[in-house]
């Protein structure tokens, strides 16, 4: 007993030092972690720098003029045709078909899951959508070429539907994007506060009127964000179009014809023998830069919408 007391006293009377101490280990670790955090910035800078550098070389080529790039409709850089439109239109057509399929379906699935399905049904059905979301795009490509195309051919006739065509790629892309749109929309719908639903029910609204006329409009910005992300995914998607949409730029608005998209073009040309510093090489980077910028802008808009949406209901 006595001894314990002395220890306590000793400790109490030891001079107290609360000054900051150097902890070199801590500082080194913190610096390393900070660098890891910066790593993502490096990646973005590297993308912008590398794509920009080669694209600069491409656009710096005296043969590539603004008028040719936006004013003509043949793209064959190897022999001096620099009209970007065939790649852009096919990208737009396949993406539009994809969105045309995935937005209504995705939204309907989201409404069903968030407003109608019992928790039990929801937990049984959601994994199916997750599986759909987890299937590699190359498998969707197989599906587009060997299922969707024959299906379209049997409906519209082999004369109408070419073996490689934008419609089948676009439709399958729609199926691929569906889970993305439905899960983002479902998040938006379930973020709508319960008080709003109760307000509607208390007015004598049915479940359907509540879901579609009150909850859906309230979640509209979140659904808009989902739509934009969906567009961005469709524009950037490569394998489905590389396999099923056709190889070779083709300026056409007929969805049953073959036409190569921006991503499909990059995949085909870079998959072959490609010598550095050729116009083919730099042109690919110019296309990739356009893809990067468009998807970046879309993603930023979508994120901005989501952040605003979140603030409103928090």
């Amino acid at each position: 007993m006595k001894q314990e007391n002395t220890i306590m006293e000793n400790q109490l009377f030891r001079p107290l030092d609360l000054k900051k101490k150097m902890r070199p280990g801590e500082s080194v670790i913190q610096a390393l972690l900070f660098i890891a955090g910066l790593g993502s910035i490096f990646i973005t800078l590297a993308i912008v720098y590398e794509l920009g550098k080669e694209a600069w070389l491409f656009f710096g080529n005296p043969d590539v003029t603004f008028a040719k790039f936006f004013g003509t409709t043949t793209w064959q850089p190897g022999i001096g045709h620099f009209g970007i439109w065939p790649l852009v239109t096919s990208t737009l057509i396949t993406s539009s078909i994809a969105i045309f399929v995935s937005l209504p379906l995705g939204l309907a699935v989201a409404l069903f899951l968030s407003e109608y399905a019992s928790p039990k049904a929801r937990s049984a059905l959601k994994p199916i959508l997750e599986i759909l979301a987890g299937i590699p795009t190359v498998v969707y490509g197989y599906f587009a070429l060997l299922f969707m195309t024959p299906l379209l051919q049997s409906i519209f006739g082999k004369q109408t539907v070419e073996v490689y065509n934008m419609a089948s790629a676009g439709l399958v892309m729609g199926i691929m994007i569906l889970p993305l749109i439905s899960s983002m929309s479902e998040d938006a719908l379930s973020a709508v506060p319960r008080a709003l639903r109760e307000g509607a029910y208390a007015m004598g609204a049915t479940k359907f009127e509540t879901s579609v006329q009150v909850v859906l409009p309230a979640a509209l910005s979140g659904i808009g964000a989902a739509l934009i992300i969906g567009i961005s995914r469709a524009i950037g998607e490569t394998m489905i179009v590389a396999i099923a949409a056709g190889s070779g730029p083709n300026f056409t608005f007929n969805p049953f014809k073959a036409a190569e998209t921006m991503t499909g073009h990059i995949a085909r040309i870079s998959g072959g023998d490609l010598s550095y510093n050729s116009i083919d090489y730099t042109s690919l980077f110019a296309i990739a830069l356009m893809l990067f910028l468009v998807t970046l802008i879309l993603n930023l808009i979508s994120q901005g919408i989501i952040n605003k949406f979140r603030q409103r209901y928090e």
Partner: peptide, 16 residues
């Protein structure tokens, strides 16, 4: 509910 309306604790106007 059509015959018996309700006003809630926190105001919950519709986003309209």
């Amino acid at each position: 509910r059509r015959k018996i309306g309700m006003v809630f604790q926190k105001p919950n106007p519709f986003p309209k």
